[in-house]
Computed example of a mutant assay.
Amino acid sequence: MTVGGSLDAALGVQQIALAVHIMAMVVSLGAILLIDWVGLLWLLGRRQIHEPGRVESAAVLLIWGGLGMLLLSGAFISPDLSDTPTRVKLACVLVLMLNGVAIAPVMKRLHEMPASTKFSQLSLGLRARMLMALSISQACWWSAVVIGLLNSAIRRGP
């Protein structure tokens, strides 16, 4: 957080960093949406339990690499760290990263279950944990995206 507030990048560097930031967001969020979509299809009984995990294992580099690029490029777009929405956005990014780490054991546990396992067959606690992680992920991602877009529009003016 302090790195972004202390860097004073030239306008050209800021523009390149913003383009990288947007591309990294598209890559990371796109991968998350795909995993969540396949997970929803499993929840509805249209996919087997292992399919979301397979998609996740294929997309893990896109997710974490994109998040890393978001953090790096974000430092060069001169964020206003005194701005409350910017702080909320950064908090959302932190929460979604912690959520991603916290859900990893659940994904491993699901992968160990028989392929025919249905969502309704999981324990209530496991179902609740999965739905909570999904809700946190989507809320944090979309909050960060909307705040970022609004901040960008406000900073650049009409």
Rank of each mutant, 00 (worst) to 15 (best):
I136A: 09
R54I: 03
A153R: 14
P79I: 07
M113P: 00
C92S: 15
P52L: 12
V26L: 15
A10Y: 03
I16E: 02
T117I: 00
L124T: 10
M1E: 02
V145Q: 02
L41T: 09
C92Y: 04
G45A: 05
V13S: 05
G65Q: 11
T117L: 01
A139S: 15
A58W: 07
K118N: 01
L126E: 08
I103T: 06
G157R: 15
L110S: 04
S152P: 01
V95G: 06
S152N: 12
K108R: 15
H50K: 13
L149H: 02
N99I: 05
T117F: 00
R127P: 02
G30F: 01
R129D: 00
W37Q: 05
V27T: 07
A17T: 06
G45F: 10
M97Q: 08
L131N: 05
R156Y: 14
A104D: 01
C92I: 04
G12S: 12
K89P: 02
V146Q: 04
I63N: 05
P85I: 05
E51Y: 03
A133M: 04
L90A: 09
V145S: 08
L134V: 02
L126R: 09
L67D: 04
S116C: 00
L71Y: 13
L81M: 13
M107D: 03
L62Y: 11
L11R: 14
M113A: 09
P52K: 11
V95D: 04
K118E: 07
L43M: 14
G66Y: 07
Q15P: 00
A31P: 00
D8I: 06
A19E: 03
L61N: 01
A144Q: 03
S135P: 00
Q138W: 13
D80E: 14
M130R: 13
S73Y: 07
L149N: 02
W141T: 09
S57T: 09
M113D: 01
E112M: 10
T2I: 14
V145I: 15
W141Q: 07
V88Q: 02
N99K: 08
V93G: 05
L124R: 13
L62Q: 12
I147H: 03
P79N: 12
S116A: 14
V55T: 11
R155F: 08
D8G: 09
L134Y: 11
I77C: 09
I16M: 11
S135W: 07
G39E: 08
L61C: 00
E56T: 06
A128G: 10
S137G: 15
A133L: 03
S73K: 07
S123H: 09
A102G: 02
G39V: 02
L122I: 10
L98K: 12
L94I: 15
S28K: 01
G30H: 03
R127T: 04
A19P: 01
G157V: 11
L7D: 01
S6R: 12
S120V: 12
S73V: 04
Q15S: 06
